[in-house]
Design a protein around this nucleic acid. Structure first.
Lengths: 123, 123
DNA sequence: TGTATATGTGCACATTCATGCACGCGTCAA
DNA sequence: TTGACGCGTGCATGAATGTGCACATATACA
C-alpha cells in the first residue's frame, strides 16, 4: 500500500532516476569491508601506526596473523587500503584519498534524495 | 615493522587523536545495515515508491514478508530508515537527512586523515 | 647454498546470519 | 463480537564467514 500508488506521481521519473544512480554507487562490497569490527580495528591501527606490514598490524590485535592477512585483502578489494610489496614484507596503508572520493560520490547522490525522501521533521 | 617505529613521530599524537575520532564515527552497525544486497534493494524500493508499508515493500521483492520485516528493523537500527505506525500498517521511509548527516560526519573526519594517511600518488 | 623470516593459502571448525514457515498479537471492518 | 488483515517473532535450516592451525612459497641473510 504505497502512497499515491493510484495517481501518476509527478516525481516518479526522478525517483526512478535517483534509484538508478543510488544503485550504481551503493556498492555492498565496499560497505561489507567496513561492517566487520576487526577490520575497523585494523583501520584504527593503520591510522595510529601509519604504513605497516602484516606482522606489525597483527601484533596490535588478538587475532592470528593469517586472519589479519585475510581481512587486509578484503579491505584492499573494497578500496579502503592499498598494498605495496617490499622484499618479504607487504606494507599496507590506508587509502584515505580513495575513501574520501567514495564517500563524496555517495553523499552527492544522497543529497539529491533529500527533496524526495525526507520524512516529516517535527523539530 | 612500522615506519619510524624507533623515532618519536611528531604526528603520533594527532594520529592517536584522529584514530579516536574515527573510532567514534565508524560504527560497524551502520555499515552492516548497508552491506546486505537485499537491504540495498529495499532502499531502492523506498526511493522508487516512497513511504510504504511492509507489505508493499515485500511485494517488490522475492523474499518472504517476514524477511523484509527483519531487514527493515536492521535498517531502522542503523538509522537509514524510520518507521511510523498507522493502525495495522507500519510505514517505513528512507531517512535521507539522517544518512546525509552521518556521511558528512564520516567525510569530515576522513578529510582530516588526508595529510596523515595518503599513500604516494604516482599519477 | 642453507637457514630464518614474512606472507599467503588449504583445511576444518564455530559462529553469525539470511531465509521461510507457523503462530500470536494488535487493529479494522461487518 | 467475530472474522479478516497487517505485522512481528520463535524456530529450524542452509549458506556465508570469521578463526586458527599447518603448510607452501618467496625473499633476505650468513
Amino acid at each position: 500500500m504505497t502512497q499515491n500508488s493510484t495517481t501518476i506521481d509527478s516525481s516518479s521519473m526522478s525517483r526512478q532516476a535517483a534509484a538508478d544512480k543510488i544503485a550504481r554507487i551503493l556498492d555492498a562490497q565496499f560497505f561489507r569491508a567496513l561492517c566487520e569490527p576487526v577490520r575497523i580495528e585494523i583501520i584504527l591501527v593503520l591510522i595510529r601506526k601509519g604504513r605497516s606490514d602484516v606482522g606489525a598490524i597483527a601484533e596490535e590485535l588478538p587475532q592470528d596473523r593469517s586472519v589479519i592477512s585475510r581481512h587486509l585483502q578484503v579491505l584492499e578489494r573494497g578500496g579502503i587500503v592499498c598494498a605495496s610489496q617490499e622484499g618479504r614484507h607487504v606494507f599496507y596503508e590506508l587509502d584515505a584519498s580513495a575513501s574520501v572520493q567514495r564517500f563524496e560520490a555517495i553523499l552527492g547522490q544522497l543529497r539529491a534524495l533529500l527533496p524526495l525522501c525526507c520524512p516529516a521533521k517535527p523539530r
